[in-house]
């Protein structure tokens, strides 16, 4: 059997942008800030496309959840090579309160609807850093899960995943259907070129709401405060090793 792959893509603040916290500490400034696809999701998309190119998958469906602008991210996935897209539109006000649990319920519903047997997601998004959606999706569906994948091999019903674990690698076999989360070393994602972005405009994108899927977006988590990381103080120059040792002793480091 061949895989039908669902791949998740999230629109996040671009990795190269310096993040600014709102003065009222309710969140980060997103207005007028460059956004792009979560880098770990690019890796997930690349892996899904490679499975199709190697004839292990019949179809790659890219899914995004979020406000209207999320469609741009979906277009990037289509330009990279996904066959079609699904945009689960969540209004901006609701979206800030939406967490991995709600998103995983959406993915689970879509997987059933689209008869997918493999879901590939980025291991985490660089905005929320939750690292939960893949695990929760596997749990909601009661599917096998291979998280932090740095290698993936599909043979019939068997999916071999090499996982990045603390200080080493773990190889596991999963029985399909399964959920995989992509780690940084899984592959090098291709660039969405201009002609491919143009061509992607012709690809189909279905628009749905969480309600259409019967998913309740209510969350029991409330964000109390968002704070900047502690500021790094400027360093000093030392003239020689004696001075260096002296300074290190002063700081209680040696």
């Amino acid at each position: 059997t061949m895989a039908r792959v669902l791949v998740g893509v999230k629109r996040v603040i671009d990795y190269a942008v310096k993040i600014r916290v709102k003065p009222d500490k309710s969140g980060v400034v997103t207005e007028g800030v460059k956004h792009s696809m979560n880098p770990f999701d690019e890796i997930a998309v690349e892996e899904a496309i490679r499975l199709k190119e190697k004839k292990f998958a019949t179809e790659v469906i890219a899914v995004t959840c979020g406000p209207t602008q999320s469609q741009e991210t979906l277009r990037t996935a289509l330009a990279m090579g996904a066959d079609r897209g699904i945009h689960v539109e969540i209004p901006a006000d609701d979206y800030v309160k939406t967490g991995p649990l709600q998103i995983s319920k959406i993915f689970a519903k879509l997987a059933e609807q689209e008869k997918a047997n493999l879901i590939i997601l980025g291991k985490q998004a660089i905005d929320g850093d939750n690292n939960q959606t893949a695990q929760m999706t596997a749990a909601v569906l009661d599917w096998a899960q291979g998280t932090f994948a740095s290698e993936l091999k599909l043979e019939g019903e068997k999916l071999t995943v090499v996982r990045e674990v603390d200080g080493g690698l773990e190889t596991i076999d999963l029985k399909m259907p399964a959920v995989v989360s992509a780690d940084l070393r899984l592959n090098e994602p291709r660039y969405a070129t201009l002609p491919n972005i143009m061509k992607a405009k012709k690809k189909k994108v279905a628009k749905l709401t969480a309600k259409d899927l019967g998913v309740d977006l209510a969350s029991s988590i409330e964000i109390l405060e968002v704070a900047d990381p502690p500021q790094r103080l400027a360093g000093i120059k030392v003239e020689n090793t004696e001075e260096l040792v002296g300074k290190l002793k002063e700081a209680g480091l040696v």
Binding site: Y15, A16, P39, I126, L184, E188, P189, Y191
Partner: peptide, 10 residues
């Protein structure tokens, strides 16, 4: 770009 992104994430 690919290298820059990879290095930043790493």
């Amino acid at each position: 770009y690919r290298l820059r992104k990879y290095r930043t994430l790493r």
